[in-house]
Design a protein around this nucleic acid. Structure first.
Length: 279
DNA sequence: AAAAGCGGCAACCGCTTTCTA
DNA sequence: GTAGAAAGCGGTTGCCGCTTT
């Protein structure tokens, strides 16, 4: 018994928001706070569905959103997080609090994808790309987390590795006796996606359960002091699979704009990002 | 100067997850 | 335990402005 789409009602307006609508929505949220979106259209008189209101608020009207071009540091951060997390834009966005997941997704699809591809081609032509050698398996976190574009939303959603999970791993929890299992090495395969609710997610649950400290998005950034340890969940796998140790990635993520990623690590991450997206 | 093509971005759609009665 | 509602998320679409021909 499916429920009717919330935006199918007659009289529901679609398309671009007008400044007047924005003002109404902002006024309402300022007064009542975000949430209970279902009530927003009725209470404000906006001829929009609740979903549209929420989206407009979170992606455009919410205070603290930075718009405009991405800095070089943000750009590299996104590339590396994408390599780790796959197309899990909400999780990636949690590392860039002033950017929305939609913004990051658009930026990736319109800029970074092409840029990476061009970079990859240049590297390949120069014989520098690591893909010219047998491709190492992506890191375990990347394997678990990446939502491959070929997989369905159901599949990608099954990778229950949220920013919180990453945070937990960053905080240094090591699964007892559980090295990073290589899995089938390809979560993008339908079977892998389907099984995520069993094997993969249970591993993630273990990670989650073992960490008691983290309960919100990780505090990462130039001002943060580095977590004391590395990404234990995948240390073993990365050590054997030829993927850069995550502690190095982690360290880089914590660098400020002046930080430099070692060339070899940069190339390997680029390779992971490229394979994640199946260029 | 006009038309066609292209790229960027806001918004929508459909699905999953979470919450609640 | 179950069903329905609400919220969250990622993929996709379509409009609009800019660039190229």
């Amino acid at each position: 018994m499916g429920r009717p789409p919330c935006c199918d009602k007659e009289g529901v307006k679609k398309g671009p928001w007008t400044p007047e609508e924005d003002i109404v929505l902002v006024s309402y949220v300022q007064e009542h706070g975000p949430g209970n979106w279902r009530a927003v259209p009725a209470r404000t008189g906006l001829l929009r569905c609740s979903k549209s209101c929420r989206l407009r608020w979170t992606n455009y009207l919410r205070p603290g959103i930075r718009r405009g071009s991405f800095s070089d540091h943000e750009e590299r951060l996104i590339v590396h997080l994408q390599a780790l997390l796959g197309n899990r834009w909400a999780a990636i966005a949690s590392y860039l609090p002033d950017r929305t997941d939609n913004d990051i997704k658009n930026f990736w699809n319109t800029h970074l994808k092409k840029k990476l591809l061009a970079q990859h081609h240049r590297a390949t032509a120069a014989g520098l790309s690591s893909s010219s050698t047998p491709a190492p398996a992506p890191s375990q976190a990347a394997l678990m987390a990446k939502g491959h574009p070929a997989s369905s939303s159901a599949g990608s959603a099954a990778y229950a590795l949220t920013a919180r999970n990453i945070s937990m791993m960053l905080s240094g929890w090591a699964p007892p006796g559980k090295g990073a299992t290589a899995g089938n090495g390809n979560p993008a395969t339908p079977g892998a996606a389907d099984s995520a609710s069993t094997g993969t997610s249970s591993e993630l649950t273990d990670c989650s359960a073992a960490s008691s400290a983290s309960n919100s998005k990780p505090v990462l950034g130039p001002s943060s002091s580095p977590p004391p340890s590395m990404l234990a969940c995948e240390s073993e796998a990365t050590a054997t699979a030829g993927v850069p140790p995550l502690s190095a990635i982690e360290s880089w993520l914590l660098l400020d704009d002046s930080g430099e990623l070692p060339l070899a690590l940069e190339e390997q991450l680029l390779d992971v990002a490229l394979r994640n997206y199946a260029f």
